[in-house]
């Protein structure tokens, strides 16, 4: 799968958030999108996933050459796009296991046994407690558990392209390592494309990016390889204003 964001301008309630942003990503690659807080990284992820609260003023989002702008988030998910949220919402009364079943069966025809096996495998990889499956989705979960449960959904839903929005924020070292291992493993096994959104470089100690983009004030201001992330590690984001 190849995703191209072309000259994308996005606003929220009249306020411009993305201004002529362009980048391309594809399967078997880990693309890292970095930038200071409020630079528009999450908005870009949400725009690809189809958040209805955003106004697409101009530009295009193409998947394998075809526009997805007219598609709802559910249709984009069925195409194989997945987003891990920074702050996933709580769903009272719906237990995690049922939710994953509902999501998986909405996307593809797969046996219940297969889903159970995939869940079991994901739980082991992420070192999650099995009893969490019986809890309501994200209700009473710690920050680390929420991140892990999001990554678990990715492992079970098996998307072709995953947008991971700050999977590293608020995690202790051990949990960060676990999450990064799961991301690496998934990318290698599935050959999926990954867009990893972060403003810290510490997750890059465990994940090797193919490409790095830097976003500031809604624009892509730099792009390169791992060396760009290392520069940010050394100098911070000051250089992008220079």
């Amino acid at each position: 799968m190849e995703i191209e964001v072309k000259d994308l301008c996005v606003s929220i309630q009249g306020k411009k958030i993305l201004e002529h942003a362009s980048l391309s990503m594809k399967s078997d690659e880990i693309t890292v999108l970095m930038g200071p807080n409020g630079s528009g990284k999450t908005t870009l992820g949400m725009a690809i996933m189809g958040y209805p609260g955003l106004a697409i003023d101009s530009g295009e989002i193409l998947v394998d050459g075809k526009s997805i702008l007219g598609m709802g988030p559910d249709e984009r998910a069925k195409l194989g796009i997945f987003m891990q949220f920074q702050e996933p919402i709580e769903i009272e009364g719906v237990n995690l296991e049922n939710f994953i079943f509902a999501a998986k069966t909405a996307q593809s025809k797969v046996s219940a046994r297969q889903i159970e096996e995939d869940i079991e495998k994901a739980i082991k990889i992420l070192d999650l407690k099995e009893e969490m499956l019986k809890k309501d989705v994200n209700v009473g979960f710690s920050g680390g558990e929420k991140k892990k449960v999001e990554i678990m959904q990715m492992l079970v839903l098996k998307p072709k392209f995953a947008i991971l929005d700050e999977p590293d924020s608020g995690l202790d070292v051990d949990t960060l390592k676990k999450v990064a291992e799961a991301i690496n493993m998934y990318e290698k096994e599935s050959h999926a494309g990954i867009l990893l959104i972060t403003h810290y470089t510490r997750i890059l100690s465990y994940i090797n990016p193919t490409k790095v983009y830097v976003m500031d004030k809604g624009k892509i201001v730099a792009s390169g390889g791992r060396e760009l992330a290392e520069k940010i590690e050394r100098e911070g984001y000051g250089f992008i204003e220079g």
Binding site: G53, D74, Q107, L157
Partner: peptide, 24 residues
């Protein structure tokens, strides 16, 4: 919107997403 979006981002239709919240 964000709550509905979260469920829909997992492939569930809008109607089913609303129902999922309500029944839960």
């Amino acid at each position: 919107k964000k709550s509905i979006f979260y469920i829909m981002s997992r492939g569930v239709s809008e109607g089913n997403a609303r129902q999922l919240f309500a029944t839960g």
